[in-house]
Amino acid sequence: MYINSAACRSFNDLAQYPVFPWVISDYESPTLDFNDVSIYRDLSKPVGALNPERLELFRLRYQETPKDQDAFLYGTHYSTPAYVLYYLLRCLPEHMLKLQNGKFDEPDRLFNSISETWNNVLANPTDLKELIPEFFCVETEGRFLVNEKDINFGIRQNRQQVADVALPAWAKTPIDFICMNKLALESEYVSAHLHEWIDLIFGYKQTGPEAVKANNLFHSLTYVDQIDIEGEEDPARKEIILMQINEFGQVPVRLFDKPHPQRFSSKEHLQVNSSHCTEIAKTPQLFSKITGPSPLDAAASKDLPPEPFNYEDVRHSKSKLDYGIITLQEFEQLIKQECISDASLHSLRPANVPVIEESLLMRTYSPHNESAVRSPPSHQSTAKDCSRMTTFNCN
């Protein structure tokens, strides 16, 4: 989610909604084996290139494009307002009605089945959609997959009423499906290949010759750095550009000019962080250069016992540890309470990087204003403007 936020993707803009990848390719088997690489999608390719036969059609059109016109492989996009509302139809029906001029789409074109949607993404030349964060958010319990409001979406050609989204055989309930998706996202295979997908969506394979090589080239109007809406003087053309963005989506802001590093495997991560924790425990004086004397050290110098702390303090410290932000006192508290095992899967902030407060983390929801605020690029925002990132709540 941090990469999405840094690339100006926001829950408050359907044309710039956060984008997540399809990671599973098997929606027919009764069970999933996360050690079986065949169940995963090829993350080194964009959705449009997953089907070789369909890709050849895209490439033929690209090659036959007249030289005086913008050449592109894909005229549609992987993230559009229509795609977002396609997924969120059951919890945001009013948004779909507004998009569809007061009526729902044809029943057979709605989000009816995970398997059907995946197969359509692989075969349909006008369907290249990726996923949205809700597919991995355990907190929402997969409610966007359930017709909780009992809305009449119509009857399909097979005479079945459109109701809840049909799940793959390996998922018994919506929350089960979400958990399996999240486990797949955190699997060893995806961890070893997710950087390839990041290169396509947020990185150096997003535009230019590298995008052509990776079969990842979209229409020029979908790229943020290739249009200047404010500087456009022709009202008609400006309206066309805005319509293109609102209806056909936009590529995220490019964040990386070089290949994104591969994520550590869980074993490597554990080894690195265990070593780092050990070094910090051995050299607590490193923290004093940043945070000043530890309150525990100050108390000891006055022959006074350290201030008592309770479980809530420890739990708060563990939460901060998840962000890689922690003080020496909090670190010592975690060790004393035997909670440091939870730190083994998280990176502690290096000693030469200033400790920051949780309030300075980039967020997209403002508890103070009790409203969601679209997050600006991190280099354009101030610390006071940031609010905690949250997932869409489909209540």
Rank of each mutant, 00 (worst) to 15 (best):
Asp26Ile: 10
Gln16Glu: 13
Val37Pro: 15
Ser25Cys: 14
Pro52Phe: 09
Arg41Cys: 15
Leu43Gly: 08
Glu28Phe: 08
Asn12Asp: 13
Asp36Pro: 10
Cys8Arg: 10
Val19Leu: 10
Asp36Gly: 01
Asn51Glu: 06
Ala7Asn: 02
Val19Cys: 14
Val47Phe: 08
Pro30Cys: 00
Asn35Pro: 03
Leu43Ile: 12
Trp22Asp: 01
Ala7Pro: 09
Trp22Cys: 03
Leu43Thr: 06
Arg54Ala: 10
Tyr17Val: 02
Ser29Gln: 03
Lys45Asn: 12
Ala15Val: 01
Asp42Ile: 11
Phe11Glu: 00
Pro21Lys: 03
Leu14Trp: 05
Leu43Asn: 07
Ile3His: 07
Thr31Gly: 03
Lys45Phe: 14
Phe11Ser: 00
Leu32Gln: 06
Ser44Gln: 11
Tyr40His: 09
Val37Lys: 06
Tyr40Gly: 05
Asp33Trp: 04
Gln16Val: 01
Phe34Glu: 02
Asn51Pro: 12
Arg41Leu: 14
Ile39Asp: 05
Val37Tyr: 06
Ile39Glu: 11
Pro52Ala: 05
Asn51Gln: 09
Leu43Ala: 10
Pro52Gly: 13
Leu14Met: 06
Glu28Ala: 15
Ser29Thr: 08
Lys45Gln: 15
Asp33Asn: 15
Pro21Ile: 09
Tyr17Ser: 07
Asp33Glu: 06
Asn12Cys: 13
Leu32Tyr: 00
Pro21Met: 05
Ser38Asn: 12
Asn12Gln: 12
Asn12Ser: 13
Ser5Phe: 01
Tyr17His: 11
Trp22Gly: 04
Tyr27Pro: 01
Pro52Thr: 07
Ile24Leu: 15
Arg41Pro: 04
Asp42Asn: 15
Phe34Ser: 03
Leu14His: 10
Asn4Phe: 09
Asp26Asn: 15
Arg54Tyr: 06
Phe20Glu: 14
Val19Gly: 03
Leu14Tyr: 15
Pro46Cys: 13
Leu14Lys: 02
Asn35Glu: 13
Leu50Arg: 14
Asn51Val: 08
Ile39Cys: 12
Asp13Met: 06
Trp22Tyr: 14
Arg9Phe: 01
Pro21Leu: 11
Pro21Trp: 04
Pro46Met: 11
Leu50Cys: 11
Asp33Gly: 02
Asp13Ser: 10
Gln16Leu: 15
Tyr17Asp: 00
Asn51Trp: 11
Thr31Asn: 06
Arg54Glu: 07
Asn4Asp: 08
Ala15Phe: 05
Glu28Ser: 14
Ile24Phe: 06
Arg9Thr: 01
Val47Trp: 07
Asn35Trp: 05
Ser44Phe: 13
Ala6Cys: 10
Val37Asn: 06
Gln16Lys: 13
Tyr27Glu: 03
Phe11Ala: 07
Glu53Trp: 04
Asp26His: 05
Asp13Trp: 03
Phe11Asp: 01
